[in-house]
């Protein structure tokens, strides 16, 4: 048996061994470690919500209907688990939201409110803007840029100051799937609300599992009123993913 064959034999011998600990448990433990080190919370770029949303948007897949809910109470913590999302209330008072799919936004809102977070969970369609770049003298005009953005700029209408945003929301995972946010309810000013929205109508792509649904980081509003520009927007249907004929959008460098 030569070295290569021996190496293959060793690899094959242990192929059945798998790490079974869920990601949520790892993240939960990492939060405890960070709290112990007193590392300041990191903030995400909230202004990206008003621009081409590929920078701060987090991708979800849609799922049909509601799903079974589990309630686990251990000491002073409570966890609500569904197939689409998990809300984990920790003993230190923080609440972690794990988003895996776009489904049951009403249930997510109810659960967050039950945990003492004045939450508004509301989907928002997106629209396409054609932006004509300025034409300089002696230069040919350039083709219009097409940017997809939320149907209204809710982020600029009723936002709490950035210091509040930073204190309330920590993005634990800056990823497409799953997304996770740590909420500090004690840092929410009296009368404010946490606004969590899902952006629909995006081009179906491999990044969003061809569902065209993305999630945006939560925003703290000055009051608990749904932004006026969203009042007339319709909710998004929760549909099963379907194959897309569109090309995936170009990835944006960071």
């Amino acid at each position: 048996m030569n070295d290569e064959e021996l190496g293959v034999a060793v690899k094959e011998s242990i192929r059945g061994a798998h790490m079974n600990i869920p990601l949520e448990q790892i993240v939960h433990r990492s939060r405890a470690l960070r709290s112990r080190r007193r590392i300041p919370a990191l903030a995400v770029g909230f202004a990206a919500a008003a621009t081409a949303t590929t920078t701060a948007a987090l991708v979800l897949t849609s799922a049909p209907g509601s799903v079974p809910v589990q309630h686990v109470t251990a000491g002073h913590t409570r966890t609500v688990v569904t197939a689409a999302w998990t809300v984990d209330e920790d003993a230190d008072g923080t609440v972690t939201i794990y988003l895996r799919q776009y489904a049951d936004p009403a249930g997510l809102q109810r659960t967050l409110r039950a945990d003492g977070i004045n939450a508004i969970v509301h989907p928002i369609p997106s629209v396409v803007d054609a932006i004509q770049p300025p034409v300089a003298p002696l230069q040919p005009s350039k083709p219009a840029l097409r940017l997809r953005r939320p149907a209204c700029f809710y982020a600029t209408t009723n936002n709490a100051p950035m210091s509040v945003q930073h204190a309330v929301v920590t993005v634990s995972l800056n990823s497409d799937l799953p997304a996770a946010f740590i909420i500090h309810p004690d840092a929410m000013p009296h009368g404010s609300a946490l606004f969590l929205t899902f952006l629909g109508g995006m081009p179906a792509s491999l990044k969003n599992d061809n569902t065209g649904v993305m999630a945006l980081p939560p925003v703290v509003l000055n009051n608990d009123t749904l932004p006026a520009c969203l009042a007339n927007t319709k909710g998004m249907p929760q549909t099963t993913p379907k194959a897309s004929t569109l090309k995936p959008p170009p990835t944006k460098g960071t």
Partner: peptide, 21 residues
Amino acid sequence: GLDFAEFYYRSRDNCFRAVLV
């Protein structure tokens, strides 16, 4: 720039097997 979640799902089994050995 690799996301932690993606790293975890991609690496956890190999890391576990290495430590198990």
